[in-house]
Amino acid sequence: MKHWLPLLLTLPLSHTQAAGPAFNCTQVEAGSIEQQICQSEPLSALDRKMAEVYTAAQQKAGNEHPPVLKTEQRGWIKGRNDCWKSADQPACIAELQARYRLVEATGPVFYQCDGNPAKEVVARFFRTEPPTAIVEFGDRSSLMYLEQTASGARYQGQNESLWEHHGEAIVVWGYQEPEMHCTAR
């Protein structure tokens, strides 16, 4: 499978297509993630934006030792390619968009829990499809997906959840952990 991000390094920004991604769609393999990007204007727009950001980051990280930017790029490509194999591609794409901050976020929103200033939960909400949030508590973070509710907004992670309604939130952080009652500051 061809990796499109390394191609970005050789493309001047002035040659990116206005309606397509920053790479040539005539050279992509059928059934690849690159083909999906070529067929989607929102993904093509994100690809163009990523090309701009990556080029700017590469210029700033030119003499970086060890080469962290290139290592992160390879990790992102692996994640993107694994996403293509996922049974739930929209959720996987939403995860990449949120984790790498490729879409606009609302927040951070700071919540104080159980009346204790030391129990602070920080949430950033991303306009992905499906909607996501990255929620931090202590030294851990959790990617959460919006679930349908009768009222408020409930985000569910692997073992964590945040249910927000009018500035109040109930947060569960860990399997069978007690609820924390939180207020937005």
Rank of each mutant, 00 (worst) to 15 (best):
L102W: 03
N116L: 09
I134V: 15
C83F: 05
Q148D: 05
V135R: 09
G75D: 04
H65S: 00
R99I: 11
V28F: 04
W76H: 02
I33Q: 11
L143A: 14
R124A: 14
T149K: 12
R48V: 04
M144L: 15
N81P: 00
G115A: 12
K78S: 13
L46F: 00
V122G: 02
S40Y: 02
E41K: 10
P108R: 10
H65Q: 02
K60G: 10
P130Y: 09
D82T: 15
V109S: 05
V121L: 03
W84K: 13
G75A: 11
S44G: 04
K49F: 00
D47C: 07
E64V: 02
Q89F: 04
Q58M: 05
E129M: 01
A61W: 08
I33S: 14
Y145H: 02
C38R: 08
Q59T: 14
E104R: 11
L96W: 05
A105M: 14
G62E: 02
V28I: 04
G79N: 11
E29L: 04
G79T: 05
A105G: 03
Q39P: 01
I93R: 12
G31N: 08
W76T: 02
Q97Y: 07
R80V: 13
P67A: 03
P90D: 03
R101Y: 00
Q148V: 11
L43F: 02
Y100M: 14
S141W: 09
E29Q: 11
E34K: 10
T55A: 11
G107R: 07
A51V: 02
L69H: 03
Q73M: 08
W84M: 02
A98F: 07
G31K: 01
A91G: 14
K49N: 13
T106L: 10
R124H: 02
L143R: 11
G31C: 06
A123D: 05
K49H: 01
